[in-house]
Amino acid sequence: MFKRLMMVALLVIAPLSAATAADQTNPYKLMDEAAQKTFDRLKNEQPQIRANPDYLRTIVDQELLPYVQVKYAGALVLGQYYKSATPAQREAYFAAFREYLKQAYGQALAMYHGQTYQIAPEQPLGDKTIVPIRVTIIDPNGRPPVRLDFQWRKNSQTGNWQAYDMIAEGVSMITTKQNEWGTLLRTKGIDGLTAQLKSISQQKITLEEKK
């Protein structure tokens, strides 16, 4: 169930391209415009997507990853294993993690069937560096609404905000991946996880038929 919630949630996290980005210092504006741009692209490019579902990787690479804190999220997933990894191991892992996100997020976007969304009203940021933004996803086919909290983090150097995690039903996506990959990290280390991520990233994206 959580895996499905995570995939549905990713439908609204794909941010804007650099040329049309919203105010990078306001995570609420980023979330709002990102959702609108993403849904528009999914709707307008269905012919290309249906002809070649792996085209979704391109959308992810162009529109999402430049505005997601990939390395920060990847380091959180590694936890204690990050500090013990060599620079070469980290570089290989982050490259594999990025390719994994292209496949995983692309597969999530393949679930698009006309969903709509509501974003919580903007709250004062103050001096906060981590801000959760509640998004409610509404399914046109009558499924119950899904309420999610996207975690946005302020870059201490640039002042810009980027998304790095999502919490559904009190469970963090980062925590879920830590639990899912924990045994592999304990037995085969970061190299074993890197190899698995490379394998997963090679899987073809498949479209979910409308139910």
Results as ranks from 00 to 15, higher is better:
F2E: 00
K3T: 02
K3Q: 10
L11S: 01
L11T: 02
V12Y: 10
A14H: 06
P15D: 10
L16M: 14
L16N: 04
L16C: 11
L16Y: 10
A18D: 13
T20M: 13
A21H: 12
A22E: 10
D23G: 11
D23W: 08
Q24P: 15
Q24N: 14
N26F: 08
P27Y: 04
P27V: 12
Y28L: 04
L30D: 05
M31N: 04
M31G: 02
D32N: 07
D32V: 07
D32W: 08
E33K: 07
A34Q: 01
Q36N: 14
Q36C: 15
T38V: 12
F39C: 02
D40S: 14
D40W: 06
R41P: 04
R41L: 03
L42S: 07
N44D: 09
N44P: 06
P47W: 09
Q48M: 11
Q48R: 11
A51Y: 07
P53L: 06
R57L: 15
R57I: 13
T58V: 15
T58Q: 08
V60S: 13
V60G: 07
D61K: 06
E63R: 04
L64E: 01
L64C: 02
L65H: 12
Y67E: 05
Y67A: 05
V68P: 00
Q69R: 02
V70M: 08
V70L: 06
K71E: 05
A75R: 01
L76Q: 02
L76K: 01
L76I: 08
V77N: 08
V77R: 01
L78A: 02
Q80E: 02
Y82I: 02
K83E: 04
P87W: 05
Q89K: 07
E91I: 14
F94G: 09
F94C: 06
A95E: 09
A95S: 13
A96C: 13
F97I: 08
F97S: 07
R98H: 11
R98K: 12
E99Y: 12
L101F: 12
L101I: 15
Q103T: 13
Q103M: 15
Q103R: 05
Y105F: 03
Q107C: 11
A108P: 05
H113C: 06
H113G: 11
G114S: 06
G114H: 07
T116R: 15
Y117R: 03
Q118R: 09
I119Q: 05
A120D: 06
A120Q: 10
P121D: 04
E122F: 12
Q123E: 12
P124M: 13
G126P: 07
K128V: 12
T129I: 10
P132I: 04
P132W: 10
R134D: 01
V135W: 09
V135C: 03
V135H: 07
V135E: 02
I137V: 14
I138E: 08
G142Q: 11
P144Y: 07
P145L: 05
V146K: 08
V146I: 01
R147K: 02
S156F: 03
T158D: 07
G159K: 14
W161L: 03
Q162W: 03
A163H: 14
M166V: 04
I167G: 04
E169R: 03
G170F: 00
V171E: 07
V171A: 00
S172G: 00
M173V: 02
I174L: 12
T175K: 04
T175G: 04
K177S: 08
N179C: 01
N179I: 03
E180G: 02
W181K: 15
G182F: 12
L184G: 05
L185I: 15
R186E: 01
T187Y: 13
T187M: 08
K188A: 00
I190T: 09
D191Y: 09
D191T: 08
G192H: 10
G192T: 15
L193K: 14
L193Y: 12
T194S: 07
T194W: 11
A195T: 13
Q196W: 07
Q196G: 12
S201N: 14
S201Y: 15
Q202S: 12
Q202N: 10
K204I: 11
I205E: 13
I205M: 09
T206N: 14
L207Y: 14
E209Y: 12
E209Q: 13
K211R: 11
